[in-house]
């Protein structure tokens, strides 16, 4: 196939993914909403997730399928431009969505976290949707400053970290939600399959402990690349500054847990805060910031 054909093929695959993740989204909403049983004596809605387990399984299957097709879309996008598929915002987004899905599937097979399927499919739909409509750029080779093996390594590490940060945020948010339910009136039935508060707390910690070294590496790889391209390994441009802030926030999170013994609610809020600094960097600095990193035409 020619480069142009490959690029078209990749776009087609992205649209297919949109459809597949939409199905996954509906399967997961169906799983939750159709599991409602009769309202019983105490007036509280009862759920029976066993009733709709099949819909949940369809959702998972769709996410797995979506992951495979997204991987193909990403691969062909890279092949069409003769380089790694993360040279501009559109490509960061589709690769990021791929990593998020991958992180979810990993967590699913390891920890059985199907309850995350709904928020994950929504996130992927939003990311891919904005990518193909707002952020889309035609496939093209890299500008000279981006031609470095460190780019591939740096951005890949950053995107994987981002995917895991997002998952950890979703877990922490779930923790906070469940915590509120349990404090007030007990967990609703639809949330019966969601792990205990303690497991949620542990899960978000372990996700972060797992990616913190990777994020550290991503920042350092970026510095090495900057050194070879601009002559300074650190110039405090807005992107670097926010990467540093994210790093500090997660280091503080780990400290708070390991040395000060923070758990539960406070840890969850700190986790969400740290994740927000990453999102802020990704969205705000990429689009509105000025600096050395804004060469990619988005």
């Amino acid at each position: 196939m020619t480069s142009t054909n490959l690029a078209y093929f990749s776009n087609g695959a992205i649209y297919a993914c949109l459809a597949i993740f939409t199905i996954a989204f509906f399967a997961h909403t169906y799983e939750v909403s159709w599991s409602v049983k009769n309202v019983e004596g105490d007036g509280r809605t009862q759920f029976d997730l066993n009733k709709t387990a099949r819909a949940g399984r369809i959702g998972t299957a769709m996410i797995l399928l979506g992951f495979l097709i997204l991987a193909i879309a990403d691969l062909t996008r890279g092949l069409s431009a003769h380089r790694v598929p993360w040279g501009n915002m559109y490509e960061f987004s589709i690769t990021g969505a791929l990593m998020l899905t991958g992180a979810y599937l990993f967590a699913y097979f390891k920890f059985k976290v199907r309850w995350l399927g709904l928020p994950v499919s929504i996130s992927v739909l939003l990311t891919l949707g904005t990518a193909i409509t707002v952020l889309y750029r035609a496939s093209a080779p890299l500008v000279p400053a981006l031609k470095s093996p460190w780019l591939a390594i740096h951005v890949l590490a950053a995107i994987i970290s981002g995917g895991v940060f997002l998952i950890a945020n979703l877990v922490a948010a779930t923790y906070l939600l469940m915590e509120r339910y349990e404090k007030r009136s007990g967990r609703p039935q639809w949330a019966a399959k969601i792990p205990s508060l303690e497991s949620l707390d542990q899960l978000s910690y372990r996700l972060i402990a797992f990616v913190f070294p990777l994020w550290t590496f991503a920042v350092i790889a970026g510095a090495i690349w900057a050194e070879s391209a601009w002559g300074k390994y650190w110039s405090w441009d807005p992107k670097e500054t926010w990467a540093f802030i994210t790093w500090v926030a997660y280091a503080a999170y780990l400290h708070a847990r390991v040395t000060v013994g923070w758990r539960g609610k406070r840890a969850a809020w700190l986790c969400i805060f740290a994740g927000s600094t990453f999102l802020f960097n990704y969205i705000w600095v990429n689009i509105w910031g000025t600096g050395l990193h804004t060469y990619s035409g988005l």
Partner: peptide
């Protein structure tokens, strides 16, 4: 240090 880095961005 993290907070102090913000104004520069």
């Amino acid at each position: 240090l993290g907070v102090a880095a913000i104004p520069g961005s």
